[in-house]
Simulated scan of single mutants.
Amino acid sequence: MVATTLVGLLRSGPAEAQGTQAAPAPRARAYTRSAHLMGSHFTFTAVSPDDSLAWRALRAGLRETQRIDRLCSYWDSTSQITKINRLAGVRPVVVDQEVFDLIERTLKISALSDGAFDITFASGDKIYKFDKQAHASLPDSATVRNSVRRIGWQKVKLDPATRTVFLPEKGMRINLAGILQGYGVRRAQELMKKMGIAGGLINGSGDVYCWGQQPDGSGWRIAIGDPARPQSVSSWLTVSDLAVVTAGNYEQYFTVGGRYYGHIINPHTGYPATGLRSVTIICPDVELADALDDAVFVLGPEQGLALINRLKGVSCTLIDDSGQTLVSKGMQLHSYHSAAPAAAAHSTPKP
């Protein structure tokens, strides 16, 4: 996925000290640490009056994300996901309860989205090159149909009694990339909050979750990128205790006859999903939002909005191929018609 969520930590200045005590309590500050995790750029921000606590919490959040990456990485030869894939068509694999539960949740989202979100997408053949170049044509239809022959979330066999995962066909593979960053952000946030960080923001390369308040007591301002103008903003909203997750098809793509084809593949057809340039999901669960942005992208504007409108507590804003902004029921955005504010921090593309 590619994200263009821009996180604007726009502050109106430090809060004034209250009272007339000779030694006022330390004022909260925002502490930030960045790292390359899960193949992406992560930024952890903790708001606290205690610098020692803030740095401990930032380190703990980073280590938790690293742990999840090692456990569930598609690329790490020692991960449990790699073992499941290696033994596809051979035998079931016993996994940790955490991994079993995460896979089980992905299958529920697959059922909810009628397969638009599908972790077995990794079973597909790589027949496209998303090099931002003009291509003469799409692959022929037989090649495309053949590329998705092993994809199918319904094929994944889970046995809760033995805590095993089994892929029944050789060549099948699962990849949790469509949900893993959101899961990592969620677990890191839960840990930091439990340690006493009452406000903060974690940005996993476009998977953003913020809670509490900024040091001056204001909410967190999240800006949504404009696909037509890289590094600029189309709209923004102020949130707290919410996830804002964006996927786009304008960082990894190719064109045929002037039409964009992004890297998000429809698992039913094998063709790149079309109709949308950007999908932003807003909801309290960053893991769910991370999966839903892919699902909506595959479903397209009409069916994607219909799905979100059925879900309680979930909103979305879409930018279609024509540049039109669409929103779900009750969604309110602030339009932004110029370049990104100087105080905004630019996120890096999601893989």
Rank of each mutant, 00 (worst) to 15 (best):
V2M: 03
G8C: 12
L9T: 10
A15F: 05
A15I: 07
E16P: 05
A23M: 10
P26I: 08
R27K: 15
Y31F: 15
Y31V: 09
T32E: 15
M38P: 00
H41A: 11
F42G: 07
T43P: 03
D50F: 03
D51S: 10
L58C: 08
A60Q: 12
Q66C: 12
D69K: 06
L71S: 13
L71T: 09
W75F: 12
S77T: 14
Q80P: 02
V90D: 11
V90M: 11
V95N: 03
F100Q: 06
T106P: 02
K108V: 13
S110T: 09
S113F: 01
D114V: 14
T120A: 02
T120M: 04
S123M: 04
A134M: 14
A134N: 15
V144A: 05
R145W: 07
N146L: 04
S147G: 00
V148H: 00
R149V: 11
K155Y: 11
V156C: 04
L158I: 07
P160T: 02
V165P: 02
F166N: 04
L176M: 10
A177Y: 06
L180Y: 04
L180V: 13
L180E: 08
G182D: 04
A188E: 05
K193S: 12
K194P: 02
K194T: 13
G200P: 00
L201N: 10
L201F: 00
N203G: 02
G204F: 10
S205N: 09
Q213L: 14
Q214H: 13
P215A: 09
G217S: 06
I224V: 06
P227M: 08
P227A: 04
P230T: 10
W236T: 08
L237M: 14
D241C: 03
V244H: 03
T246N: 09
E251S: 09
Y253P: 08
V256C: 13
R259F: 13
G262C: 01
I265N: 02
G270F: 04
Y271H: 01
T274Y: 04
G275H: 00
S278N: 11
V279S: 01
V286F: 02
D293R: 10
D293F: 02
A306D: 12
L307G: 07
K312E: 09
V314R: 00
D320C: 00
D321P: 01
G323H: 05
L333F: 00
Y336S: 03
H337R: 14
A339P: 06
A344K: 03
H346V: 12
T348K: 12
K350N: 14
